[in-house]
Amino acid sequence: MNSTSVPPQPAFATVSLTPNSAGWNTTSPTLVNIGALDRSCGFGVQKITYSASDAQPTTSTDVPGAAAAVAITTNGVTTVTYTATDAAGNTSPVQTITVRLDTAGPVITIVRSAAGTYLYRQPVTAPYSCTDATSGVASCVGTVPNSSPINTSTLGSPTFTVNATDNATNPSTKTVTYNVAYRICLLYDPNRPVRMLGQVIISLRICDTNGNNLSSSNITLTAAASPALSPGPSPAGATTPRSSPPTASPSAPRTCPTATTTSNSPSAEPTPPPTWHPSP
Rank of each mutant, 00 (worst) to 15 (best):
T165C: 00
V124I: 11
C130F: 03
T117I: 02
T49F: 00
Q9W: 06
Q56W: 05
V45I: 15
I184F: 01
L229C: 13
R192M: 10
A88H: 13
S265H: 11
S251E: 13
S5R: 02
A87F: 14
T134D: 12
N90K: 11
T74F: 02
N170Q: 14
I206K: 10
G136N: 01
L186P: 03
T117P: 04
S148F: 09
S51R: 07
R205W: 09
I202C: 13
S148M: 04
G105Q: 07
I184V: 15
P190D: 10
L17C: 00
A236H: 08
I97C: 03
A22E: 13
V144N: 02
V70I: 10
N167R: 05
G156W: 12
G42R: 14
H277D: 10
G65Q: 07
N25A: 07
P145E: 04
A224W: 04
A115R: 02
C256N: 15
S129I: 01
S265T: 11
S267I: 11
T98C: 01
T59Y: 06
R242H: 10
G89I: 09
T58H: 09
L31T: 09
T26Q: 13
L119H: 06
V162K: 02
T175K: 03
S40G: 15
T240A: 15
A66W: 04
A71V: 04
S243A: 12
P171R: 12
A36N: 06
S40E: 14
S53P: 00
P57Q: 11
T209P: 00
Q46C: 08
L214G: 06
S244A: 12
A22N: 13
Q122V: 00
T222D: 07
T26S: 11
P235K: 09
S135D: 08
R195H: 08
